[in-house]
Amino acid sequence: MEAIQIKDLTKQFDGLIAVDGINFSVRKGEIFGLLGPNGAGKTTTLMMLSTLLKPTSGQAIVNGFDVVKHPSEVRGSIGMVFQDPSSDDVLSGYENLKLHALMYDVPMADIDAKIDHVMDLVGMKDRKDDVVKHYSGGMRRRMEIARGLLHHPQILFLDEPTLGLDPQTREHIWGYIESLAKGQGMTLIVTTHYMEEAEKLCDRIAIIDHGKIVALDTPERLRHHLGGDLVFLTGKHLDAEKFKGLSFVQSIEASNHTLKLCVTDSVKHLPKILEIAGPLEHLEVHPPNMNDVFLHYTGTEIREDEGDVVIQRLRTYTRSKTK
């Protein structure tokens, strides 16, 4: 059974195409990763799937309901942890969660116990009565993740849920999120910039760039798609030209004094490569990880708006303090 089906989904913001005719399906109980550089269209996609943004064209079916024709049924099936803080900082963590529980019709008798449970999970139980204004950025994030888990939706969207969290908390939260999918059949759509997490956690990963899906597969198969291991050569006299045309070299990327080659059967072909390369300062060979896959599909140049986005995000996190 498909939890989500997307067909030619497109979103245009006066002139700018943020999401450009994407297609994919997510199975029930699957953990589906959406990776992409800043501005790729991840958040916009999640906003359309959660009915907060109207698609310019195309179709999306969430839990069997069309997001345009039956938005309230869709909203009844989903939960969302937003990328940006979306809690009321005048209220306490408990009050924010209680408001959420009431809106989602959690039975009155269960509300307090459930709040305790999820706040405990993110290590916030003893701070739940503090006003959100007094939380640190990471604590506020944790509280909002707890809020997203509170009403046990069938489909949960997590937009960079672990951004800015310490490794212990990340590990803990991911562990729980995984148990939700595996144990209770909850479907999860996750965006993250932590490649390792995505690789470990996701059943399948879609890489999105400039609003288009550029790759979609299991993490393992995505790594295999690169066609070999990565060989990094560092030296003063390297010449990329010399490696061109070799049958076992799948791709070449040069940056100052370093060449990055993707090589099939690296063990067998390494001597030949070293011979061509000449004297080296440094040599590294490793099988591709998700980071390599990501860079392969989306290129290495930094997106122009990346700096702005980061600054803007820091601003949103500190805004509550300056209110």
């Binding site: 009915t51 909203r75 989903i78 803080p85 979306s86 009321d88 959420h100 809106m103 989602y104 949103t316």
Partner: peptide, 14 residues
């Protein structure tokens, strides 16, 4: 402005 409205509008409430 504080994005709190998103949290309300995404709920199943009409």
């Amino acid at each position: 402005k504080i994005d709190f409205l998103k949290e309300v509008l995404i709920s199943p409430l009409s």
